[in-house]
Each structure stands twice: as C-alpha cells, then as structure tokens.
C-alpha cells in the first residue's frame, strides 16, 4: 500500500460561495452588495448612533455606548405628543383612504364606465409634477377654508398623497382575481355581495394589504404636506425630527427619533406577515 495519498484540492472561498449560492449568480451577488451598502449599512450606522454616548472620528466604533439620549428623548412630552399625532394621522388617513379608494379601485378594476382609462391615469398626475407646487396651491385653498394648522387639514393633504397607491394597486388586485372563482361561488349559491366578501376580497387581500402598508408607512413618514398645512399647531414625528436637527445638530437625537419612527412601520409589516403570511405579502408587493 502506497504511503502517498492525494487529497482533493481545497475549493477556494469564491468556489464555495458560488456552490452555496447555487452557481455563478454574479448579478445577484452584486445586487446584494449594492443593497447592503446603500440600505443596510446606513441603517446599521443610525442604529449604532442611537446607542452611542461618545463617538469621535476616526474611531470605527463608538468610544462609549449608553441609553442616555434615549432617556432624554423619551422624557420629552413633545416627542410623545408628536408620536401620538403621527399615529392618529396615519390610522385616520389609512382608514379614510381605504374607505374612499377601495370602492373606486373595484370600479376601475372590474367595471366599464365612460372615461374610465382617463380617470385612472389622472391619479398619475399627482406624481407627474413637483409635489411642492401642488401643495402650495392646496395650502392657499385650505387657508381660505380655515384648514391650515388643523388636524383635518393635514389628513386631507396626506389623503391626496395616498390616492395613487390605494387606487392603482388594489385595482390591479381586483382585476387579477380569476372570474371563474367568482362564478364558482355564484354557482354554489352566493349573491354578488357574498361573492365579493367570500371570494374577491380574500383573493385580493395580500395585494390590498401591501397597498395599506405602503399608505400607512408613507403617511407616517410624510413631511412636506404635514409641515405646510399642519405647522405650527400639528407636529408629527418627522417634523419634530427635522426641527431637532435644524435647531441643534445632535446626531444621537436624530438617530433615536429615526429608530422610534421605524417601530410603527415595522410593527405594521410584522402584523401583516403574521395575519396574511410572508409569501402573500411578497406576492402583493410584486415579489
């Protein structure tokens, strides 16, 4: 028996990585690196800043961690008031948007009526022009109506912002429900309303949920409309964050408020995931 034995060559790190990723998906790898550096990395940095007591250049990590800035922020009444206002606004706008837009989306998705396509495309105009110009015009009208500086005024201005998401996405969802599914329900004895409730709505729910999440999160983070119409009486979390950063540039304040801003949208996403399932949400978002 020979003492000489040949061991198989050790695969390189790259080969092992490719094997693990199931082949040379270079595009996927590059996309991951790009996303990681543009989305995840800034988030990590903000996360570190929120818990950094002392972090001086050129140190890679903070010299001292602590919850001091959290204590300061959470002790402020204006922070809690802004958070409450933001949540109230987001829930109110989302609920109203659902109430107004979902029937409209159903009509656009399933019915034929004059100027249907023109009206459907008109929602795009909200995004086709600089938003601030539109807001100025609306603010002028609101001023005459006494809506500036009121909660109702901010609700209305933010509602405008949600129209496109809440009409276009659910309309596509209603349109994509297989008519045979509805006919099968009718065949089983369901009235048109029962068909909608038991079949059409559940079938399009993941996509509608995605639109609702986008609306909620979009409203929660909205600044321009809230600032122009709400200031100075209605202060939302993003507006408060801006004022903090403008008045005294303490990065930790901004970082703590940023993390606090993420919580509601994160909770909304987790709730939807739990109720509808991750796959359904991903499908709803086009994944």
């Amino acid at each position: 028996m020979s003492l000489l034995s040949i061991s198989p060559p050790t695969p390189s790190l790259l080969t092992r990585l490719l094997r693990r990723t199931g082949g040379a998906d270079w595009f996927g790898l590059l996309a991951f690196i790009f996303l990681a550096s543009t989305i995840i990395l800034p988030l990590v940095v903000v996360g570190i800043w929120a818990f950094a007591e002392v972090w001086r250049y050129p140190a890679v990590l903070p010299q001292r961690f602590g919850l001091g800035f959290w204590g300061e922020m959470l002790a402020r009444r204006d922070v809690w008031a802004a958070l409450t206002t933001s949540l109230e606004l987001s829930f109110t706008v989302t609920a109203l948007s659902m109430l107004i837009c979902l029937p409209a989306a159903y009509a656009f998705g399933r019915m034929e009526f004059p100027f249907r396509n023109t009206l459907f495309l008109s929602f795009l105009t909200l995004r086709a022009f600089p938003k601030f110009g539109l807001l100025i015009v609306i603010a002028t009208i609101f001023l005459n109506l006494g809506l500036v500086g009121t909660f109702a005024g901010v609700v209305l201005i933010q509602l405008v912002d949600t129209l496109m998401y809440m009409v276009w996405i659910p309309a596509a969802a209603f349109q994509s429900v297989d008519r045979r599914l509805e006919e099968a329900a009718q065949d089983a004895g369901a009235t048109p309303l029962q068909v909608f409730w038991h079949v059409t709505l559940p079938q399009s729910l993941p996509t509608i949920a995605a639109a609702v999440i986008l609306t909620f999160v979009g409203t929660f983070y909205e600044t321009e409309g809230a600032w122009l119409i709400g200031a100075p009486t209605v202060t939302t979390m993003p507006i408060l964050m801006i004022s903090f950063i403008n008045n005294q540039l303490v990065i930790q304040y901004g970082a703590v408020l940023s993390l606090m801003l993420w919580v509601p949208s994160f909770v909304a996403l987790m709730f939807a995931r739990r109720v509808l399932g991750g796959d359904a949400i991903a499908r709803g978002l086009g994944g």
Binding site: D178, R180, L181, E183, A184, A185, Q186, D187, A188, G189, A190, T191, H198, V199, P202, Q203, L205
Partner: peptide, 19 residues
C-alpha cells in the same frame, strides 16, 4: 341568476378558492 339555479358547474380550471 346563477345562484338561484338548480345547477352545479365544474370548471376546467377547477376554480377552487385557494384561501
């Protein structure tokens, strides 16, 4: 209307409600 007819239909695409 279909919901009041004494008929039962089996569709080509099965038309089962996935939820």
């Amino acid at each position: 209307p279909p919901e009041r007819r004494p008929t039962g239909m089996v569709f080509q695409s099965h038309a089962l409600w996935s939820h």
